[in-house]
Write a protein that binds this DNA or RNA. Sequence first.
DNA 1: ACCTGAACACCGTTCAAGT
DNA 2: ACCTGAACACCGTTCAAGT
Lengths: 223, 223
Amino acid sequence: MGKLTRQAVLEGALRLADEEGVEAVTIRRLAGELQVTPMALYWHFKNKTELLTAAVDHLMAGVIADVRPDRDWRERLRVIVEALVGTMRAHPSLPALLQVADKEQAESFTRATEATLDILAEAGFTLDEGYTIASYLLNGAVTLVHGRLDCRAGMTPEKVAQERRMHALRLQALPPDCFPRLVEYGRTLEEPSDAEEYFSFGVDLLIAGVEAMAAKKAREGTA
Amino acid sequence: MGKLTRQAVLEGALRLADEEGVEAVTIRRLAGELQVTPMALYWHFKNKTELLTAAVDHLMAGVIADVRPDRDWRERLRVIVEALVGTMRAHPSLPALLQVADKEQAESFTRATEATLDILAEAGFTLDEGYTIASYLLNGAVTLVHGRLDCRAGMTPEKVAQERRMHALRLQALPPDCFPRLVEYGRTLEEPSDAEEYFSFGVDLLIAGVEAMAAKKAREGTA
DNA sequence: ACCTGAACACCGTTCAAGT
DNA sequence: ACCTGAACACCGTTCAAGT
């Protein structure tokens, strides 16, 4: 058989994560898939943390592909947030990986942060504020993708539909006098919702917060 | 010795979580602290998931204490977000608990969601949008609190200062031509930052997004 | 009703040994 | 250089048995 490489381990981990969720990525399980003993992986990665960091690094590499410094900061910010959301939609494991892995050690993540800080500095924010906003945007994107069942690891259309029905039923079973909004929401949950519409609203929401704060700072600055 | 109660288990779990982080809350570890065998806990809780859900339920109970239906929706929304942030600051384990526990099963969490949906419906959002915004606000609050080292489990002022210095050094060690913003941010990180200012900015940011989207909807509605 | 003991099927990781 | 075997110190959980 072809011998084990660092890349083969990484690919195996990503496949496992995308198909069955990050919690399925255990050293022992992964070793089983790759037909080696668990300890073989330790030759290629110092420990599990380093493996997950490498996975994040690999997936985040695509996020800062297209930077256009000539554009307005609003446009540049939107491009980077949409790249982030797009990458997460393509790789269902990324949101969870960003939560468990030591992302600050991933170079591609650091590059994306630098790019975001640069955009936000141009918008008039301090570096402190920029750093807060950068993690607000990152976690906002994570939250958005996480909120879509069809963007979760190993989800077939049938499973999505079934989970939706279950969720709808649970909400409709609540006492309507205490939870009128949730019961009503449970009813709307029976018909499928459009992903593009959802993400469009979500990204607008994230960006709107930043733009409003920038406008506020500009007002205070000139006052 | 006094015998084990459901409440004693819950209190032990919360203490452990606040002092050493949720990852320290294992059935075996907790049983050790309570001077019983691991299996004793299974009499009071069906499984670990149920324990963590109960913990979330207990901590979230304070969040919807003061609802003032006579006020403007903006004010009501701010009150609930600030209650959320305040509760998390008081209980360092809550952000992590909300990520790992099955929060939808916690009644107090459901009540807070209902209250938020109600406020957002008044603001002109659909239930779908309201649900998206509610999780945006929740995770935004989690992100904010998580970003403060001094709000993490088991952090003494000394540890905070030391972690800050380490972070500052790591950033300043980056190549300045590639990462000018991060290097600069590393320098600002050497002097302590004000928590109140940070949270004030953060909550404003979260609310600003919602208000901007509400204004946009109002414009489109009358147009 | 409330708790224990023993067992099962998992983890990540170290360390000495093999080729 | 690259991998294995055995061992250690952990997990959550089940199930039969004790009081």
